[in-house]
Amino acid sequence: MRKSVLLFVTFVLFGLLSSAQQTKISEFDLYGCWVLENKKRPSTNIVTYKLCENVAHEDVKFGSKISLLAFNESEHESTGPLACFTTFTEKGTWEFDENSRIASLYSGHEWLKEFKQLDPDEYASWGSPEKFDKLKFRVISIENNQLTVEIIPKQYGKKRTEDSLE
């Protein structure tokens, strides 16, 4: 009798732990304007974004604002190449894979369309990109209007393969 009760309790606990371990996060959960607070960035790639309306303007980290919008549209702050400490809002696109919990933000699609029309040969020599990677992160959690993510570093010069996803 004791073995069957112990076995039953073990299965119940295992079932509860496995269902509570990974809460489903959808694309809709990510919609909104997100910023980093103006604190010292931790040495790891784990950061916590907060909803824009929950952080005072003077406490927002420079250039950290991202807006994830419907229809895979996005906006993010970029810095001007010629003017220090100025930002402008750049439009882009974004994708979210619910299985891997990876969000990817892209920019430059409008500029690349114009470039393709104006100089097709030069565009082709670039490998005919449709967009540029801006930011990629894995969602760890969304709680209390905070989005905790792991930033995935950009890989320059080589394509990402199945082997490099470790």
Rank of each mutant, 00 (worst) to 15 (best):
H76N: 05
Q22M: 04
S104G: 03
N45M: 04
E53A: 06
S125E: 15
L6M: 10
W111F: 12
P120Y: 14
V55I: 07
L30S: 06
S128H: 10
G80W: 14
E95S: 13
G108M: 08
E58W: 03
A124H: 13
S67T: 10
T86R: 10
N72G: 03
K158H: 09
L135E: 06
Q22R: 08
K65T: 10
A103K: 03
G127N: 05
K50C: 05
R41H: 05
E95V: 05
F28V: 14
L68H: 04
Q146Y: 01
I152Y: 02
P120C: 13
D121Q: 15
V5F: 12
E73R: 13
K40W: 00
T86W: 00
H109I: 07
T10V: 11
W34Q: 07
K91I: 01
H57L: 09
C84A: 15
L82R: 09
F14T: 15
E77T: 03
G32N: 10
R138W: 01
V139T: 04
K40C: 00
E90Q: 14
K158Q: 14
V149Y: 04
G92W: 01
P81M: 06
N72C: 02
F115A: 12
F115G: 05
E150Q: 13
T161R: 14
T48W: 03
L147A: 05
W126A: 14
Q21V: 08
N145P: 01
F137N: 02
F85N: 15
D119A: 13
E73F: 09
K39Y: 06
K131M: 07
F71V: 07
W111N: 04
I142R: 04
R138E: 15
